Measured scan of single mutants.
Amino acid sequence: EAHAAIDTFTKYLDIDEDFATVLVEEGFSTLEELAYVPMKELLEIEGLDEPTVEALRERAKNALATIAQ
């Protein structure tokens, strides 16, 4: 499951495998979680700032909209 989540994140969020791995290690496994989890939870991840989190959430929401079509 972790590998599938990493693949999904790299494909749809335009991030590298290392960043995707950090997200999975922090407990995220779906685009929905990244799109809708409280921003505070993402900001608790070391190295993430508000602009990065906002961009990540926007990419996740856009990916979900694209997949739904």
Rank of each mutant, 00 (worst) to 15 (best):
E33A: 15
D18H: 15
T30A: 04
L23G: 00
M39L: 12
P38R: 05
S29I: 12
D7C: 10
A5H: 07
E54H: 11
A68I: 08
P51V: 13
A20R: 01
E26V: 14
I45W: 04
L56T: 00
A63T: 03
D14V: 05
L56V: 04
E33N: 06
K61F: 08
T21R: 15
S29Y: 13
L42E: 02
E46Q: 12
E50F: 12
G47N: 05
F9W: 02
I67R: 05
G27Q: 01
A4S: 11
L34N: 00
L56F: 03
A35N: 02
E58T: 09
K40L: 10
E44W: 09
A55R: 12
P51L: 13
P51W: 13
E58C: 06
K61R: 12
D49P: 03
E26R: 15
A5Q: 06
E58N: 08
Y36V: 09
L43Y: 07
E54R: 14
E33M: 15
T10A: 07
L34F: 06
E58M: 08
H3Y: 10
E46H: 12
E32V: 07
D7H: 14
L34W: 03
L13W: 01
E41W: 13
E1R: 05
L31A: 01
F9G: 00
T21C: 08
E32F: 11
L34Q: 00
T30G: 03
A60P: 02
T8P: 02
E54P: 00
K61Y: 07
A35V: 13
E44K: 15
L64C: 03
G27E: 01
E25N: 15
E33Y: 09
F9Y: 04
P51I: 12
P38I: 07
A68R: 06
A68H: 13
L23K: 00
E33H: 13
A65T: 08
E26S: 15
E1P: 12
E17P: 10
L13D: 02
T10E: 03
D16A: 08
F28R: 01
I45P: 01
K40M: 09
A2N: 12
I6H: 05
S29V: 10
K61L: 13
G27H: 03
P38M: 07
D18F: 12
I6F: 04
L13G: 01
D49L: 05
I67G: 05
F9V: 00
V22Y: 14
A20S: 03
E44Q: 15
V53N: 01
E33T: 08
A4I: 10
E41D: 11
L43D: 03
Y12T: 03
L34M: 05
K11M: 09
I67P: 03
H3F: 10
P38H: 08
E33P: 01
E33L: 11
K11Y: 11
A5D: 03
E58K: 09
E32H: 09
E50N: 07
E32G: 06
A20I: 03
T52V: 07
A35S: 05
